[in-house]
Structure formats: C-alpha cells, structure tokens
Amino acid sequence: MKVLIIEDEPNAAQRLSKLLLKENSSIAILGNTDSVESSVKWLQSNPAPDLIFMDIQLGDGLSFEIFKKMEVTVPVIFTTAYDEYALKAFKVNSVDYLLKPIDPTELKMHWKNLKHCVDQISIK
C-alpha cells in the first residue's frame, strides 16, 4: 500500500512512518509534505497514493485548504491534537481520524478497518 504523509512536524512524521512500517512492512511511504502548498504540488505531480495521513494544522494553514484547491479522491485519515475539527473532517472524504499523540494500539485497530476500505476502493 502506498501512503503519503502530510504533517508539518518532522518528528511526528518520522514517528508515524515508523509505526506504519512496524504495522505492515509492505507499506511504502511515498513522501512527507508539510504545507498546503507543497501538498497540492506533490499531489498534482505524482501518481496518487492509496491512502493519505493528514495533519490538520499545517505550516501555512489548515489542510482543508487542500480540498478547496483540488479534487482529492484518495481516502484520508486526519490526525489532530484535539476534536475541534472532527465534524468538518467527516464532511470531507475522510475515512477516519486519529488523535495525536498517535497510539500504536489505536492505529492497529483502525488499520484493520482501514485496509478493508482501501481494498474495496482499489477494487473499484
């Protein structure tokens, strides 16, 4: 499975990568972008990933801006420090959202559901 991580704190991105690889070593982390601008650029110039982990607070604004600038058909998991944006997140094509700091057990639990959804979408 190909994953894009959109996260502005380098430590958090690194941590998430490690957790994902630990979960399933066949995951390929395609890259890590840290701003709305660089994420849009990446998505427009690279083949689409299977899944995006997206932080809500990015270096140059809220990641919701990405959806305003382009169409994103890839399933997205939001990671956020607090619940304020929960509702807004579900309006967009979010599969799930995870609270930071990311708990490996939580990730594992969601992963099972997640993989199922992603597989379903790939079949289509």
Binding site: E9, N11, A12, Q14, R15, K18, A81, Y82, K100, P101
Partner: peptide
Amino acid sequence: NPHFLFNSLNALSNLVHE
C-alpha cells in the same frame, strides 16, 4: 491550552522512542 500542551506532549512522545 491544547495547542501548546498537546503539541509539546506529541513532540515528546516522538522523542521518547527515537
């Protein structure tokens, strides 16, 4: 407030393992 505290704790949780 959540911003400072959670961001700090999150950064910390990343550091603890690395």
